[in-house]
Each structure stands twice: as C-alpha cells, then as structure tokens.
Design a protein around this nucleic acid. Sequence first.
DNA 1: GTCTTGCATGGGT
DNA 2: AACCCATGCAAGA
Length: 859
Amino acid sequence: MASSSSSLPKLCFNSSCNQLLGDHSRRGWRRRTGEFADLCDRCGIAFEEGNFCESFHLNASGWRSCESCGKQIHCGCIVSFHMFVLLDAGGIECITCTKKSFILTPNPAWPPPSLLLPGLPERIKDLSAKNWSSIAASGPVPWRQAPSLFNPELHPKMPSEFNIPTSKKLSDSMDKKENLVFSGRLMNGGLKGDASQISENGKSGSKCEDQQSPYVNDNPHSAILKNEPSSPNPDLTLNTTSKSEIAEHSSISVSQAQPPAPLPAAANYNGVDSFGEGQAQIGRPQDRNQLLPRYWPKITEQELQQISGDSNSVITPLFEKVLTASDAGKIGRLVLPKKCAEVYLPPISNPEGIPLPVQDLKGEEWVFQFRFWPNNNSRMYVLEGVSPCIQSMQLRAGDTITFNRNPHGKLVMGCRKTSSASSDQKKGPVNTRDKASAHGDSTAKKSKPGEVTAQHNSKRNSVSYSPLTMNKANLADSGRKSNKVVENKCDAKVKPAAKPDIPIKRKNSILGSKSKRLRIENEDMMELKLTWEQAQGLFHPPPNNVPKIVLIDGCEIEEFEEPPIIGRPTIVAKNNLGEIIQWAQCEDCFKWRKVPGYAILPSRWTCSENLWDPKRSLCSADQELTLDELEDLLPSGNMAGAKKMKAEKEDPDSLEALEGLDALANVAIQEDGDAYASSSLHTTTTKHPRHRPGCSCIVCIQPPSGKGHKHKQTCTCNLCMTVKRRFKTLMLRREIKQSEKAETARQKLQQPEQSGDDDIQMFCDAGNSSSSHNLVNGEGSNNDQSKKKLSNQLDLNIHPEREEDLSPVLNSGSITRMIQDGTGGPQKVKKISRSGGNLVVSQPPPPEVGVENYSTDVA
DNA sequence: GTCTTGCATGGGT
DNA sequence: AACCCATGCAAGA
C-alpha cells in the first residue's frame, strides 16, 4: 500500500487532512504525475470505500445527480472522475447505470447508417447511452461515442489502449508539457478545463460543472470489463478495480518496456493526467491488425477544441493521415488506410461504396464517396471527391487530416497543417511523421528520405542573403516563366510561410524521385539554373561586401551577409574628360540623365533625384543626349524610351501603337525568362561583384543577351575589336591544346562559319534585320544560306555571363551556345555538353585587350 | 486535349 | 513473404 518513496516526512495528500504520515500510508488516486496520492489511514479508507468525496468534498461544488438513478456524484474531482459518464444530451450518468446501457456491437465504432446521412440531426441529438445500446450488439462498452473502440476482440484498440509507459516515463512526458491529448479523450470538458485545474485533492470541485472529467468516458471500460456488471457497489468496485489495475498496469508498463516516446503523445499525456486510472487498460495494440502508429490520432487539445467548436460536443478522434501528393492532388482521391477505413468507417461490400457525409471544421458538410478498389486480393479504400474539401481547408501534401466523430456519430474532419518550411527544418520534428518519430514509431524513424529532402531543400534555402532567397518577388516581376520555375521546381519550402508540397515519404529525394510528378526534368533543372542566374543578375552586391560563393546543384550562388542592392540599371559611358559616367533614365519622363559613375541609383529613379545636375533635375529639362546619340548608346532591346520619345516627337499619333508594341515586346522578353528584360542595360553583375559601374572589362562592356546594340559587320569599335580579339585568342588557345586540330582551328578562325562542328558555336542574333551582322554559326553548318548569312559576323550581343559559364572551373563540361531564334526574337540559351572538354575559355580578357578603351564614348 | 476512372505496379512496412 | 498504399497509367468519357 505504501507508495511513498521519499524519505522526507510526508503529509496526507488530502488537503483537508494533511495529517503526518508515518511509515504506513495508503495509496489513493493516481496523480497526474503518475504517482499515487499518499493518504492517511482515515482518508485512504474513505477513498477505498468510495466515500472520499462524500467525506471531504461534501461542501464543494460540483455535485451532480445521475440522470438515471439520481445518485449524487462529485463531478470534476479526480477522486470520482471515473464514477460517471457525461451524457450526450447533457447531465451525467453514474457508471452503474452506464454499464447497464452499453453493449458491444460488431462494428459499433460506426453508428447506424441512418446516422451517417444528413437530415437526421435532431434525432441524433438525443442519442444517449440507451440509444447506443440499442444499436449495440454485444458486450458492455461504456464509451458511447465509439463503443467498438474498446472491443478488443473485434477491433483494433484505440491509442488509448496502447501501452502506457512507466510512471517515470509518463512523468517525463508530462514534464515536456505535451499538448497532445489522448485520442480517446472525448469530452470537451477536458478541453475547457485544463487538467491541471482539476485538483488532485478534489479542491477544484467547484469547477466541476465546467470540468467534467472526460476521461472516465474514455476508458471506464477498463473497470467495467474487469468487474462484474452486477457489482453491488460500483464505486467501490471501480476503486478496487482501479487499484488492482494500477498494479497490473505497472507491471505491464515495465514488462513491455516501451520507449518513453513511442506512444502517441496523446496517450502519453493521458497516461499521466489526473484522470488516470482508466489507463490501466491502456496497452499497445496486441495484434497485427491494429492501426499503424502513423495513423494514431495525435490530436492536440487545441485541435480538439477547434473541432468541437463552442458546442459542448464530444469529439472522438479516430485516426489521422498525412496527406500525400495524391491525396491532396487534383484527382480528389484520398487513400484511406485500410484498417482505419474498416474500423472506423461503415462497412462496404460494394466497390462503388457509399456516400459518406463528413463535416469540416467550419461546420460545412461534405459528402464523399467512400469506396474501395480491389487490390491484390485486398482492398484499397478511398474517399472520392475530397478535392473541394481539401482546397477549402487549404490543405496540401504533408498536412495532416484527422478524422473524428462527434457525439452524433457524424464524421468530423480536422486538419493539422505543417508549419512553415523554415521551422520545419530548424525545429526538427514538427509534422506528424516527425512526431511519430519522436514517439518511437519505427516507420517514422525510418523516414530518412524526408530528412534527405529537407537537407536538400535547406541547401537552397540559404539563410544568408542570396539572390536565391530573395529572388521570389523579383522573379515574379521579371518573368512569368521564372516565377513558374520557382514555384514549381523549387521545393515550396524555399518559399517563406509555404508548406512543403510533398509529404516526403519513402522518397529518397524529390529531385531523384522515381515519381514523375516529383522529378524535375533535366530541362526544368536547366530552366531553374537559368532562373537562378537571372536572379543573380538582378542584384548588385552590397558595397564593400565580398560574396561567399556557394555551389548548389551546380549553380553558382553568391551569398552576401547583407542584402544585395537592387539598383537601377544604367549605361556606363565616358564623358569628354574620359571619366566614367552613367546614363540613367528617368522613370517618369524617360529622359536620360548623366550621373556619376559611382552612383548606385534606386530601382525607381526620376529626374528629381538627379542631385548631380540640378539643371536637369526636372523632367521638363531637356535631355542632354540627342536621340541619335541615344540610339547609338542604347542596346536595341532597350530602346523603348528612346523610341517613345522619338515617336512622340515625330508622330504623336504613333506613340500609342508604339507603346503597344513595346508592351508586347516586353511580354515576349519576359516570357523568355530574361530577367534582364525589365531593366538591364548595364547592370553590375553579381557574378562579378568587383565589377562596379564603370568597369569596362569584356564582361561588363557587353550588354545582356539580346539587348545589345547591333554592331555592323565592319564595325571597328572597341567592343567589336575586343570580341574579335578574344575570339581569336580562344581559338588560339584551343589550337595549342589541340595541335592535331590546329590547322582546322585556323581555318575556323578564318572561316568561322565552319566551326560549328566543334566546341565554339556562337550564333547570330537574328533580332536584327536583313543587314544583321552576326557571327559564326554552328548549327547551321549544313545550311548554306545560313552559312553565308552568318559568315564573318560577330555576335556582340552574346550574354557575357554565359561566356563566364565557360569557365572550366564552373562549368568545364559544358559550353554555352546561343541558339538563334528563327523568329528574330530573344535568344534562347541552352547549354550543351561537350565531349571533348578540352576547350579552355573564358579566362580574363587577354592583356592585349585594353579594357579602358571599351567603354562606349558617347560624349 | 483534358478529365475521370479503375486497375496495376512496386517500393516500403 | 505478405500486405499496404502511393502513384502510374491506360481506357473511356
């Protein structure tokens, strides 16, 4: 009897007594810590005889009468919590009367079909234990909400019946303040009244109306099953039984030696809560037919409260499932775990199934088709037509859907959304699977694929400021395609506050998944890469900030400690004095203003912000540049402003049409995913953070792909000369490396159009008209016309960064080539693999290239 | 061409 | 080894 393990002198746990306990004490009720209240002889005897509340709580509030026999029961008191059940229609019933009411049913977890159908709620409302008994078939089950759940012979046990860990473990669980409630904890009383509010010594009886101990309804079963229904003194019987079970439970707990956390946290919680003696029967499912732990309802109090709402409805958590991609997909089929379907849903014999009304959290009623498919001599249960509901609840793959039953027998769906991606990654177990893992669920523990994926994701989800992490919003502006890529191809976890799209189950990786739906095709990967690169192009590195280069999935990502600067693109040029200047276009009037070379302008910049030239700090001020100068200066793709101005000047009527064309062009450019389209004339590339405005290296002097100023074949500007020289240099290097091909290479140099069969393939920019002066072509080597057209033409509009990709360090196995867009539209960039891999390119401009001469001098 | 339906497949438990 | 179940996929609407 003595249960005290402390060496300190102890007082009787009954606060009304507090008598000093000697060596001998009597064990009272089970406390929430899992220990037992130590009582003095007098109190202990009163407890054992079932008179404790009558003796000590008589003046406390919370006494209620059994609706059937009128017996007074002190509700809400831990001492007598198991002596009554809450009636659906209100009121309580003593356990004796309850026992008379319940009998088991073959599948009593499910109410009569009539209860499944809408339209009968009123009838259901008055459903009492007797109603349930009328539909029951065999055996006493005091859990009117789901009597079958406690039919160990016919049905899998509810989590409430799973093993309870040792008291120590239970205590530990309590210490962790698990917020989960026992699945069988039905009563909203348990929701509204914190368990802790129910004093262990019964002092909180005053709150009993609001704190009807729910737990007795969960598991009084244990007492009843172990006691003869004819027990003359139910109270005493219950107490006695409890005590015997307590001992039994202790041994069970130890012998089964479950890890502290393998059980649903809910069970853990209840295993130690103040309602506790009912857990004597808690045990792990004994046979293989029982639910897998992953389906155990791990519903939290909060969720229960959400489901039960303000009503005093009693919610019975049945099972839950983490939504898969299929479940949450458009197809609208939710695969139900077989056991769950067979145990908790109405039996179906016809594959066509039956309509199954389900209520959601908002009280909305949905009717799904509950059916099965024959599958390998078995069945596969599905709920069809769940898509609207899933969408309504804004659930996605990875979220958990819970199935509960309200007192009326109606299914109520709850949900648990996975937390945001970042917290997922950082906080560890968050989703159900992880929770299960924490519980020791072996299946969950093996779910390493998810971890792999998480790592994979985290790879992309740099915490530091990188264009990648910031490119979402920007890409949204810079191109629909890019945006699409980000949304579809990047794991949603990258997106802040987004949930993972994929439940990550069994799959080794999303990218490498066997699932076609999850797999990112090579082409898409390429698209993704380009998108990242484009994103990089949008950012200026913060001043004096050297980025950290990270290689992710072969993509070079720069990370900055500080957020990158998104600056307004400008045209770098030189003035008469040879000083580096920039030409910036006013957002409002489209006029170009000269600003110092060092200036970094905000993305939206207007004349009024022209601090350097007060004379031209108003839009009304004339533009310094003539239109012709401007035309020379501007890359063709960015002539919108100039054209607009010119058109306005020459023919005001044409302006509108021109704007329309520009809009179309912009759309086209954006469609092509060119992040530069929206802005860049010359942006400081983050690929080369040292390239500041004014930098005139080979990379910086070139406009972005497709946007460049068209140079004529005979053009001898510095840029053209540089490119030509560089091309020559490249070929020479190649010549050295491939001595046996030296002769061929020289020929190619002289007749570049023939070089297409090899590595270097530069394509013309067909954006120009017939007089276009583009370069070398490889693809068209078998096309004589193309050859002629392309011969001796240099493309000065190649993407400089593509060239950088040629760096053997970064991309030794591939070479970028510009593929001519036959429509004359923006170039598309593809990377092709090189088998030879022996071309060394993209070294810094050779020394002979006088970079200082490459700036376009427009002054 | 798209959507729906029902079965098949195969990795995971 | 049997079963489960996520998902593919073909046929039909």
